[in-house]
Design a protein around this nucleic acid. Structure first.
Length: 196
DNA sequence: CGCCAGATTGACT
DNA sequence: GTCAATCTGGCGG
């Protein structure tokens, strides 16, 4: 059973409104090269983030490296730790603006056995159905901060994937102060999202 | 240098 | 449903 990897998405894929990119990313494949193996999963849940105007973002109260990256070149990964877990984001926004997309959940398609080992669980639905979980399953840590996901040579890339039948949207999860518009996107009827 | 907040997870009642 | 653990960057003194 061999699957061929599709093309890596170009950088200008991320040069768009953060919410639009979040929606477009559904069905795409997050691909991670780990110890000569390939770990990959279909993106089934995302959240859009904005910069200063977003109370949930750390950039809201600070002006450091995270903010600069969020307002900088699109298509780069942002990896940040919260509550001792790692969250995997991609910078995506219009020119002269700031924002990003948080990958919240994947549907594993390659390297599943390796993911089970990394996560220490056997249940496939428990592998990547949460931001901290998918980072652990793909062995992502803060060394992935600022790597470009649009370069073939990167250890983590996002590639062309599958057509999504139905996209649903809702308010974000786990955010203390949310904006008044729904910025969470997910594949309807997927069993791999973090929450129904 | 110490303190605080934060986008989560998982175990327990 | 509720609650505590655990990590890092930013900010104040």
């Amino acid at each position: 059973m061999r699957k061929k990897l599709k093309a890596v998405l170009p950088q200008d894929f991320y040069l768009d409104d953060s919410a639009r990119v979040a929606e477009k990313l559904l069905g795409k494949v997050l691909c991670r090269v780990y110890g000569g193996k390939v770990l990959a999963g279909i993106i089934v849940e995302t959240e859009a983030y904005y910069g200063k105007i977003d109370p949930a973002s750390r950039a809201y109260r600070s002006n450091g490296d995270l903010t600069r990256t969020l307002y900088g070149d699109v298509g780069k990964a942002i990896v940040y730790g919260v509550h001792g877990k790692w969250l995997f984001n991609v910078v995506a926004h219009l020119p002269n603006e700031g924002g990003g997309v948080l990958i919240r959940a994947l549907e594993p398609i390659m390297g599943i056995e390796e993911m089970k080992k990394l996560r220490g669980v056997e249940n496939i639905f428990e592998l990547t159905n949460g931001p901290g979980k998918l980072s652990q399953a793909l062995a992502i840590d803060k060394s992935f901060h600022k790597i470009p996901v649009y370069l073939e040579s990167s250890p983590a890339t996002i590639r062309m994937g599958f057509e999504v039948k139905e996209v649903a949207r809702s308010f974000r999860i786990g955010v203390s102060k949310d904006l008044s518009i729904p910025l969470r996107f997910y594949v309807k009827n997927s069993r791999f999202i973090s929450k129904l």
